[in-house]
Amino acid sequence: MSMPFYVSPEQQMLDRAEFARKGIARGRSVVVLRYAGGIALVAENHSTTLNKVAELYDRIGFAAVGRYNEFESLRISGIRHADLRGYSYDRRDVTGRSLAGAYSQLLGGAFASAAEKPFEVELIVAELGDDPGADVIFRISYDGVISDEENVAVIGGDAERIAQIVRDGFTADATLAGAVRLAARALGSERLEVAVLDRRSPRRRTFRRLAPPEIAALLQGEAS
C-alpha cells in the first residue's frame, strides 16, 4: 500500500506562494499613483485591446497583473459585485473597501484551499474620494493579503524596485503628464496603457481611458 508523502503545512504554503509568484513575475508591471486631478493607472502593455486597467464603478478603478484569464474573470466578478450592490442599495454604497475585501476573500480562499490552484494574479483597487485626502488605493496579493497603500501602489514582477523609483519621484500636486512620465520612467517603457479616475470630470463615471495619441502627447512633453 502506498502512502502519500508527508508535506508540512508550512512547506505547502511556501510551495504555493512560490508557484504564484513565479506566474506573476513573468508579467509586466502596473503603477497606480495619485496626481493633482485624481488617480492615474499606468500599465506597461504592448496590446491596445487586452486591457490591464479597467473601470469597476463610478469612482473605482481596477488594475491587474498575472494570468490574463484569471484577472479578466476577477474583473467581471468585480463589476457584477459593484453593479449588484449599487442597484440593490444605492450608487454611493459601492465602496473600494468592499470590493477590495471581496477580492481578498476570493484570492485568499483559493490560496488556502488544497483543492484549488492559487490565483497567479495581483490586483489594485483604487477609489477616488470626494477630496484628495479621501483617495484610497488597495493592493491585493495572490494570497489574499490586502494592504492600504499611500499615494502609490505597484504590482508585477519587479514591483519593489519600480515602487521605489515612483515613491522617490512622487509629488501629490503633479500634473497628469508628470505622473505618467514618472510611471513611464519607473516602468522603463513607453508602450503604456493609461486610464485615470478624474476628480474634475463632470460625469458621474470618473473613469476615462486615454487614447494612444493622448498618451504619446503626455510622454512627449518629456523632451521639452
Binding site: 479597467a54 469597476l56 467581471i76 463589476i79 457584477r80 453593479d83 449599487g86 442597484y87 463615471r205
Partner: peptide, 16 residues
C-alpha cells in the same frame, strides 16, 4: 428605468 440604466452601463464595462 434603473435596471435599464445599469444594464447599459454593465455591458459597456464588461465588454469595453
Amino acid at each position: 428605468v434603473r435596471l435599464f440604466q445599469v444594464e447599459l452601463e454593465h455591458f459597456e464595462k464588461v465588454e469595453g
